[in-house]
Nucleic acid binder design. Sequence first.
DNA 1: TGTATTAGAGTACATTTGTTTTAATGGCGC
DNA 2: GCGCCATTAAAACAAATGTACTCTAATACA
Lengths: 205, 205
Amino acid sequence: MALIPEDDLTVAQHELYGWIKEYMKNFQHSPSIRQMMQAMGLKSPAPIQSRLKHLQEKGYISWQEGKARTMQIVDEIVEGVPILGSVAAGGLIETYNDINQNLDISDVLTKKNVFALSVNGDSMIDACIADGDMVLMEPINHSSSVRNGTIVSALVPGLGTTLKYFFKRNNKIFLEAANTAYEPIQLNQEEVILQGKLLAVWRRI
Amino acid sequence: MALIPEDDLTVAQHELYGWIKEYMKNFQHSPSIRQMMQAMGLKSPAPIQSRLKHLQEKGYISWQEGKARTMQIVDEIVEGVPILGSVAAGGLIETYNDINQNLDISDVLTKKNVFALSVNGDSMIDACIADGDMVLMEPINHSSSVRNGTIVSALVPGLGTTLKYFFKRNNKIFLEAANTAYEPIQLNQEEVILQGKLLAVWRRI
DNA sequence: TGTATTAGAGTACATTTGTTTTAATGGCGC
DNA sequence: GCGCCATTAAAACAAATGTACTCTAATACA
């Protein structure tokens, strides 16, 4: 049960294709035929040429003839997944099939210094952040730049890093869970280091 | 308020840098110096070399000396956000700073035919899927390939597209919401078209 | 077993391409 | 105006590279 139907490829072609994808992901440019030759353990360029030709005929790759390192992987969508519609819960939905919109995640991922944290526990369950989720955080420079109600990751000495709602009242900082089973934490400004504020949530099933 | 501090670049360097990024985004490989020359309206490679050298010294790009089209853009993180630790709710946490792991989203995004749906309503709120979330779905070919308990988007004639838990018992299909306020839907196999199964959830704050 | 097909080795060649060098140009301060 | 500096043009060169070709070994198939 292959996830991607690459069954029309021979073993050698599949191996080369995988190597190329890996190389291009790492180096952001196309490898040369002689590099592929070496990577595949071959001693002449002819077999690579043959495999590339087949890969091109089957629509996996393309390149500009005669030009060095101009391969492209045509198969995979580099960035963006089509948004096919909106889906409702129980009620009516409009399914706009031909909308030309793509889910854009890159703006968050390419933001400077963004980091991710893996969520443990269920203290934010009422904010729809579950155990095992990845939260993408933007570093906080000044605590004054954080609005009340923002979800932040905060380092509380003795407690460790925790994900909570942030509130500031009368120079006191309150960290509140999104779960009534947890008591709010009240702290002085010096007692807490705000690490980042929540940008996005990512959950793999 | 520039997002990325490119202020240390001259106008010519900045223009070239922008063009290179655009080219590499479109073609998945590095341009040649002569291509850049032409794009910048120049008639000799020397000015491009000079600008590339400056871009390299300032840490924007890199390349392998002597090799054709081996440029890389070092500035932006192409894919991947560092996972800095795991964050707990209220309890203790281990914050592993030096873990060399990156949040990898590409495997889902580059999967064939994956599509996204915008979630309306709160019927899946107990599965931590909230109004406004984006759900990434993998197309379903055969209903037999869907396991009980999977979250699917299903097209129910007269009802529209809906996001629900999928169950199959005695050749009947049950679509259950993750919200006790909604009643389960019971259908015959012919009455429902399974569109996709849930791969991931994405939520922007 | 014999033959056709395919894969690979080895080689050669033209083009592309990075790099170097030298000369010309143009702006700029004095 | 004059000289200094950075930018560009122009040309040349060597390395890298894609491509074509021939020959050999392996493989499949009847």
